[in-house]
Amino acid sequence: MRHPLLALLRRDLALFLRRRQDLITLLGFFLIALALFPLGISPEPELLRLIAPGAVWIAALFATVLSLERLFTDDLNDGTLEQLLLCGQPLALVVLIRLLAHWLLTGLPLVLLAPLIGLQFSLTLQETVVLALALLPGTLTLTLLGGIGAGLTAGLRGSGGLVTLLLLPLYVPVLIVGTTAIAAAMAQGEAQPYLLLLAAMLAAALPLAPWATAAALRITLD
């Protein structure tokens, strides 16, 4: 039963890995965007610590939006998407697999970069751990929600700005809770409730977002 979906996961990962260039560009974007904050504002460590939570999340948010552009486009153009629609597996599950593969290669690296971000913004070890723990469910939620936007705009010309406009209002709650978690850790407060809230958002997005994305793809393919 599970086999076809596993094969799909393997295929999606292989295809995404084939476009190594895109992945490297994305990580480069994330790091450069973060490096611009000290350059643009101030090298003062205290000030940098103050803006770090917001800067990290905003960079992660835009990196996610940027990465979404080719999520479905290639499969739409070569007809694979229609085959997937007809393959007998529920489309929402197929979409979930695709989003997980995408997140493993675009979202997870951002989480793994947390130590580097910690150095850039002079965070303590404990704060860096909270940062990584917040990014882990946060980026996955961003990717899941992003699937809806990507599914709706797949195949449209110049859809980058449109995806941003559609998705950013939806990303606001993740941004708010994510930054608050890190800020709480910095203020020697308790970060756990915010991390749990992020996990709750993930738990809500996990079943709903792939379902909405599947509906979006059906409309796109209609």
């Binding site: 809806i148 709706l152 705009t153 449209l156 859809s159 449109l162 406009l165 559609l166 909405a212 509906a215 979006a216 409309i219 796109t220 209609d222």
Partner: peptide, 18 residues
Amino acid sequence: ALHAAIPDRQRAGRAASL
């Protein structure tokens, strides 16, 4: 913006509704 961006009216309507 989404309603205006999709050339096909039927598809545009359903995508925007979603």
